[in-house]
Measured scan of single mutants.
Amino acid sequence: SKDAAQYVYDEAQKGVTQVTVNGVTFKFDNWQKLLKYAQKLLN
C-alpha cells in the first residue's frame, strides 16, 4: 500500500537499514538501498 511505502520511505530517511511492515521485516546492507526500495514502492 502507499501508506506502507511512505512509512518505509520515512524510515529510510532516518538512516535505518531495516524496517518492519505488516509483520514483515526487510533488511538492507545500507539505508540507501532501503531508500531505493521505498522509492520503487512509491512509484
Rank of each mutant, 00 (worst) to 15 (best):
Q18N: 07
Y9N: 10
K40E: 07
A4T: 03
Q6S: 04
Y37D: 04
W31A: 00
Y9F: 13
L42S: 01
K33V: 10
N43A: 06
F28I: 11
K40I: 05
G23I: 15
K33F: 06
T20A: 12
N22D: 09
K33H: 08
K36C: 07
T17F: 12
T20H: 10
N22H: 13
V16K: 04
N43Q: 07
A4N: 13
K36Q: 08
T25A: 05
K40D: 03
V19R: 07
Y7M: 15
A38G: 01
V16A: 09
W31E: 00
Q32H: 12
A38H: 01
V19W: 14
V24I: 05
G15H: 09
V19M: 12
F26C: 14
D10M: 11
N22P: 14
T25P: 09
Q13F: 12
Y9C: 15
F28C: 12
V21P: 14
T17D: 08
Q39E: 06
Q13H: 03
V16D: 03
Y7F: 11
S1G: 12
D3S: 03
Q39W: 12
T20E: 09
K2I: 06
F26S: 02
D10I: 15
V21I: 12
A4D: 14
L34F: 03
K2T: 13
L34A: 01
L42N: 00
A38I: 11
T17W: 13
K14Q: 11
L35F: 06
L35P: 00
F28G: 01
W31F: 05
Q32C: 15
V8G: 08
K2M: 12
Q13I: 12
L35E: 01
A38F: 09
A12N: 05
T25E: 03
K36N: 07
K27F: 14
V19P: 08
L41H: 01
S1L: 12
G15E: 09
Q39D: 04
L41W: 03
S1D: 11
Q13G: 07
Q18D: 03
K33S: 09
Q39A: 05
V19T: 04
G15L: 13
W31R: 00
T20P: 11
T25S: 13
V8W: 14
K27Q: 08
S1N: 11
V21W: 02
L34H: 00
T20Q: 08
S1I: 11
A5N: 07
N43Y: 04
V8Q: 12
K14E: 11
K2S: 06
K27H: 12
W31M: 05
T20N: 03
K27V: 15
K2Q: 11
N30Q: 09
S1T: 11
N43E: 05
F28D: 03
N43C: 15
D3L: 06
D29N: 12
A12L: 09
K36Y: 05
K2E: 08
W31D: 00
V21C: 05
A38T: 03
T25L: 12
T20C: 02
V8Y: 11
V19N: 01
K40T: 05
W31G: 00
A38Y: 04
